[in-house]
């Protein structure tokens, strides 16, 4: 690298206007805040929808558990555990078969979505400390 050319090019530099850095940070903060507002709104909608959806799906799950006899089978564990020891494999299969799989998966899925969207919504409310003066 030619040191003379380096000096010439370095002397060639001009200073940007005084508040350019501040303006850039300000614009980024505004954009980030807007993006966070939109995300917060979106995640909240999803969380509320999940919360509403969990009611009928839970009711349906409970109803199906009652119809399938899961409750009666499960109560045997408490009331007559000794009698089950010899037949625990068959009992386990019968118990598993009585679980309404689809309804259970639906309820668990909705709970996961509720947790995920609620967590993300809360994350959008954190302050933007890395651009401290403008956050």
């Amino acid at each position: 690298m030619d040191p003379k050319l380096t000096k010439i090019f370095c002397d060639f530099q001009v200073e940007p206007r005084q508040y350019l850095c501040a303006d850039i940070c300000h614009v980024i903060v505004l954009r980030e805040k807007r993006s966070r507002h939109i995300k917060f709104f979106g995640y909240t909608i999803i969380a509320i929808t999940a919360l509403i959806a969990i009611v009928p799906t839970s009711i349906s799950l409970v109803h199906q558990l009652g119809q399938s006899g899961f409750g009666q089978y499960a109560s045997l564990v408490v009331s007559d555990a000794g009698a089950l020891t010899g037949y625990w494999k068959q009992f386990a299969v019968t118990l598993a078969e009585s679980i309404p799989g689809v309804s259970l998966a639906l309820v668990l899925g909705i709970i996961l979505i509720l947790g995920w969207s609620a967590r993300n919504a809360i994350q959008q409310t954190k302050p933007l400390s890395t651009i401290r003066r403008y956050a």
Binding site: P16, L20, I28, S129, T130, I131, R133
Partner: peptide
């Protein structure tokens, strides 16, 4: 690294450091 960890003021420092070189380049 500090910016990714959301450390206070780090991105500002980066902007301050690179504004003049980038400005001269684009100008």
């Amino acid at each position: 690294n500090e910016i990714l960890l959301d450390t206070q003021g780090s991105f500002e420092e980066l902007v301050t450091r690179y504004t003049k070189p980038l400005y001269n380049f684009t100008l």
